[in-house]
Design a binder for these strands. Structure first.
Lengths: 209, 209
DNA sequence: AAGACAATTACCCGAACAGGGGATGGCATC
DNA sequence: GATGCCATCCCCTGTTCGGGTAATTGTCTT
């Protein structure tokens, strides 16, 4: 079986280079190229791909449109973003759109070849700089400390409040009385220094519940 | 220069195996091992390390304690978590604690050797399964689309609701009447298909307000 | 110009909520 | 066996919220 691959890249020179890299990573690959969103979407309309290298900054839009189209046509398609933009917005946007990898084109081709090869084995291709950035993001959003020493039951109640349940609904799911729920909420309010359930919901999501 | 490395692992057999892997990845390394938190902390008290392989589930606590101690003694130390636990809590906890990598020990040793080698070149060592999990996390938290075509005013009100303000507080900050605020909230509810302000708060944070 | 539509503002009422009090039983620690 | 913490329940009072209804303005279409 040969691998149907799509390379979306506006600059001709870069497009050739990526094709070279692709051919080296997988000689059996059947390579199709597109210089812009329009042609890429036209091709994707009547053809299915297994792997795609997608540039983001294209003259007629963002490569993410194509990525979504490819994923819709074939959810198993491996869509790898290959760009020179390493800013947070681009990375997060690409991952949110369903990208299976994020490679920076300012890397030695040998490294790109290796990462594309690994992709086929299920290893998510992430350029080192991108991996570091993602981990740093977790380091900032991760700290789930400051638990405000809530009791397990309080944490549980707060979790349901954060999901938008009413007191009587929480009571029903936990099998306790509504008054009890209200009592737990009161102590949560006291411990968190708040006085409304919207604030409670905010803290709940912040505490990862 | 030789690389001062610490291997923290409770099971003797696994400790030997990791030492083997380490020696193969970097023959010049000067390897120190510890079977539990206590001895690891004692060693870290009078010795500085450049690289550390840290297990999480230890008999006398979590390896993250040691990780933090090492990072405090030498912020440039490369602390890599090496464990068999791949659950979200462990991964996020480790990254939040400042881990520079996360490796699963149920991988072929050749892969581990390669990833440890790459670590020294600045490539964050992440096992494929872990990288996928992290990316999936982004895929869930990232989507800033699905704006539910809220009007600017509604978005503004929703933002304040999400911060936990009451209707009259929102009214005061926006310089409008409380009834107006209530009306905006109602149309927001209709558009988002919800019926309580806790759910509204949830959506507000999700929409990044 | 006339009509359609969305956004913004406003009012009323019943239901839900916040926060204060106090009470019971269980479980641990001391 | 005394103390403290937790979870569970109840009452009460004032405030807030949610839903129905409707007027005003501006924009866009017809």
């Amino acid at each position: 079986m040969n691998l149907r691959t799509l390379i979306l890249e506006d600059l001709a020179e870069m497009r050739l280079w990526l094709s070279e890299v692709m051919r080296e990573a997988c000689p059996d690959a059947e390579i199709t190229t597109a210089p812009d969103i329009r042609t890429a979407l036209a091709i994707a309309g009547h053809e299915v791909f297994d792997l795609a290298l997608i540039d983001l900054g294209l003259p007629d839009g963002s490569g993410l449109e194509v990525l979504r189209a490819l994923k819709q046509a074939n959810p198993a398609a491996l869509c790898v973003v290959a760009t020179i933009m390493g800013d947070d917005a681009s990375v997060v946007g690409a991952l949110a759109a369903g990208a299976d990898g994020y490679l920076l084109k300012n890397q030695p081709s040998a490294l790109l070849v290796r990462q594309i090869r690994q992709t086929l084995d299920g290893v998510p291709p992430l350029s080192p700089a991108i991996a570091r950035r993602i981990m740093t993001h977790f380091r900032q959003t991760g700290p789930v400390v400051a638990d405000a020493n809530l009791t397990p039951r309080e944490r549980e109640v707060l979790g349901h409040i954060g999901k938008g349940l009413r007191n009587h609904e929480v009571a029903a799911t936990l099998g306790i009385g509504t008054n009890t729920v209200a009592a737990h909420i009161k102590s949560v309010y006291a411990k968190l220094g708040i006085s409304s359930r919207a604030e409670a919901a905010w803290h709940a999501t912040k505490l990862g519940l």
